[in-house]
Design a protein around this nucleic acid. Structure first.
Lengths: 221, 221
DNA sequence: TCAAATATGTGAAATGCTTCACAAGAAAAT
DNA sequence: ATTTTCTTGTGAAGCATTTCACATATTTGA
């Protein structure tokens, strides 16, 4: 009988993905430092995790190590970059060239990881047409159109909370499936659109809670 | 016999604290919109959570609701602000007046929640002495000293990854117990210092992973 | 006043995530 | 060549978090 069951798509936890980012970072440093291999123990220590956790995380995606030796640094870094999809570059647009927005345009870390901000949008006439790091700011009126024309794959939203939903509605209309939102508001998007929120106050609030309650944190996220 | 057992300090999970931030935000909006009460269901809907989760989270800290009616908006917002320790203002210093640092100085959300940036530090002679939003940038050389003199309670680190550890060592020397780090590096601090990391690339990487793997996110953090 | 509807607070069940512990494989040492 | 050491990969156990389900309390409507 020919009926194969579909290959089970394992559910990978959010925490695991975030830790992959940490492993990637650590491996990049190890590579620069000239190490050829690293053990789960060594990797764990660099990011304040446990060796078991490292091994378990990696095991979801395959067997990359050699018993008795550890993991090959370069190879593992490359493998993780494939898993995360950062073994390529992404065309990113940024909406809202204010405080945060401007900072993000110049943020080296994004570029380094292949996230290329290639379009800027704002609704402020004084900003439209101005040049930020070689990119001319477009009028937000043409948002949906231009996102499509320019083959944008991800959009970063850095507009005031009050208008973020309208902006996101436009972005969704353009067929964009990945949005990173810096506005402190819960945005509604269809089920097939990936939305992540970056809430910078949250961690300060966590610190505040920790100080007031003399809370002992278990780990550092 | 007089030996009472110490009052058990329940361990509150990181997730619960982060959700308190969301509840706080939602309640602030509800208050502005004129609502006097809100149910766990209503609150959950605003932040894409479940009613049971809302009730469980709040139950760790007390009983704030009325059966058949819900929670009093103003009172609950105040209560949460007490729990999070944001029913007061915090004296915050920021080290590294670069892209991100400058943006954070002007970031309204921090001020709104009582996090007052009152000191700026940099090592760049061109920046030292310059004025950002009414604050004169100090020389990072005097970091430890000035932090103590000015009764700083939290420090935001927005320096390059390569120097972040040195900066943090100084901050720790000054007796600071709460640090928010924007540098993409794992910093070492003593056990009694609370360190949180804000890694802005991480969420983009998550989006990248989601697009490449057509991953269905369970919730939005 | 009473019934119906609403909504909390919370043990218990279910689910999810992390850590343990060890067999198995590979390298290093003798 | 053989033993010792090292380290992975992974079921299973342990722990933590979320969801369920319902007793209980309050409001609303008739």
């Amino acid at each position: 009988m020919a009926s194969d069951s579909l290959p089970e798509k394992k559910r990978i936890s959010e925490s695991t993905i975030h830790r992959l980012s940490l492993y990637y970072r650590a491996l990049s440093v190890l590579e620069k430092e000239g190490f050829e291999t690293v053990s789960s123990k060594g990797l764990a220590k660099r990011e304040k995790l446990t060796p078991a956790q490292v091994r378990k995380d990696l095991s979801f995606f395959g067997s990359f190590g050699t018993r008795g030796l550890g993991y090959p640094v370069v190879e593992l870094r490359e493998k993780i970059s494939q898993i995360l999809g950062i073994d390529r570059s992404w065309r990113v647009a940024l909406v809202g060239v204010g405080n945060i927005g401007s900072a993000l345009v110049s943020y080296k870390e994004f570029q380094k990881q292949g996230f290329k901000i290639v379009k800027l949008f704002d609704n402020d006439q004084r900003k439209i047409g101005s040049n930020h790091k070689g990119i001319v700011v477009s009028d937000i009126k043409n948002l949906a159109n231009e996102l499509e024309l320019d083959n944008i794959e991800m959009v970063v939203v850095a507009v005031p909370a009050t208008v973020a939903q309208y902006v996101v509605d436009d972005i969704v209309k353009a067929g964009i499936k990945a949005i990173l939102n810096f506005a402190p508001v819960n945005l509604k998007v269809p089920d097939d659109v990936f939305l992540r929120n970056e809430n910078m106050s949250m961690e300060l609030e966590y610190l505040s809670f920790a100080l007031v309650n003399d809370h002992i944190p278990k780990r550092v996220r």
